[in-house]
Design a protein around this nucleic acid. Structure first.
Lengths: 196, 196
DNA sequence: TTTTCTAATTGAGCAATGTTCAGTTTTACG
DNA sequence: CGTAAAACTGAACATTGCTCAATTAGAAAA
């Protein structure tokens, strides 16, 4: 009631994102509820609109946070994995999505009305993941200064994304694909080989 | 009121799918409303539950119908297009998605609780699209009897799907990718070339 | 023809949602 | 200490998915 000294603005922001993140992971975007997030954080609906302006922006912030975790996850996989770093990346992409299907799906299911729903912070948090892959792809190219190497890298991300998307949505299960990760990796290798 | 002789059960089914299809195309899955579909069809909420059992199954039926239109669209493109049939397919994939972004997104945003939400009809309507691509891919392979040609074809679909998904969701716009279709086609060509 | 039966259709009722905003409370500052 | 600004609440509103008793239209039986 009234202003709470329990949390600073930043702490409150972080708290709502954290609780929202948990709820999203548990229930998925479909059953995500602003009221429930507020309740779990010990506040009420209105506070979310105070802090984030709209529910959409809270979800955007939660998704950006997921990107951070995802990037960390990939970095760990790269560090722990062997010499085949491309393999580590592809498998890491899938493993994260399969470990947190609701969080992963929310990233792509959440349609932003405007591009300006995304803050500067959102942008940079999301770019980190792309940057990791770009570095690794460039390291594997015979000519790392190849023009359009970054575009090529993102095209490979899209390739893996498509396979992963089919797994999470159940499409591949329907088609009885036994090894989607292997397929994705095979495609990536073929495309990489073609650049040499 | 009471039983209406206006429509047989099948006509009513088709009518609700048709009106639902229009509404979905206009508003997207987020603002899709069973009440609104019923109203447009000249019925009320309850009727949807009578005919489809649940809203989810209506949406599933609408999405299956979208698959039919999509398959027709691809067949026309193949017929009208030139010798480069793979190009026709890739561009057709994107063009359909971009022409009907709400319908296309709904297919992948709609999560089925159980696999048995999908009827036998749903399955076959959805399989048509895959079959078209499988045929064309096999026709282009030097060895059309190559083991796993069907799995390979679906992997190519996933590849194109990933690129298309990034376009529709705005991810590629964010990354300032100037030619996503060209990228997708390039990847597909590289993978096809690798099979020879 | 009249009555009876059955299945289709309605719409009120319920719990829940996103969003707004007038009012209340707390804190910081003069 | 008093005042002004900022934070927080929660009632209000329109809307949603879903259920189910009541109603009604049409087919079958008398």
């Amino acid at each position: 009631m009234g202003r709470r000294s329990d949390h600073t603005r930043e702490q409150l922001r972080a708290l709502l994102i954290a609780e929202g993140h948990k709820l999203l992971a548990e229930q998925g975007l479909g059953k995500f509820s602003g009221r429930e997030v507020a309740k779990r954080a010990g506040y009420t609906v209105g506070t979310i609109y105070n802090v984030f302006g709209s529910l959409d922006r809270l979800v955007a912030a939660i998704n950006s946070h997921t990107f951070l975790l995802w990037a960390d996850f990939l970095r760990e996989r790269l560090a722990a994995g062997g010499d085949d770093r491309i393999k580590s990346l592809v498998e890491g992409y899938f493993d994260f999505a399969l470990a947190h299907p609701n969080l992963w799906s929310a990233i792509y299911d959440h349609r932003l009305v405007d591009a300006d729903e995304l803050s500067e912070t959102d942008y940079s948090q999301r770019a980190a993941l792309t940057a990791i892959v770009e570095d690794e792809v460039r390291a594997v190219l015979t000519d790392p200064t190849m023009p359009g190497a970054d575009r090529f890298a993102r095209s490979l991300i899209a390739t893996v994304h498509g396979h992963c998307s089919y797994v999470v949505s159940g499409t591949f299960a329907l088609l009885e694909e036994p090894d989607p990760v292997g397929s994705a990796l095979a495609r990536v290798r073929e495309c990489l080989a073609a650049q040499k």
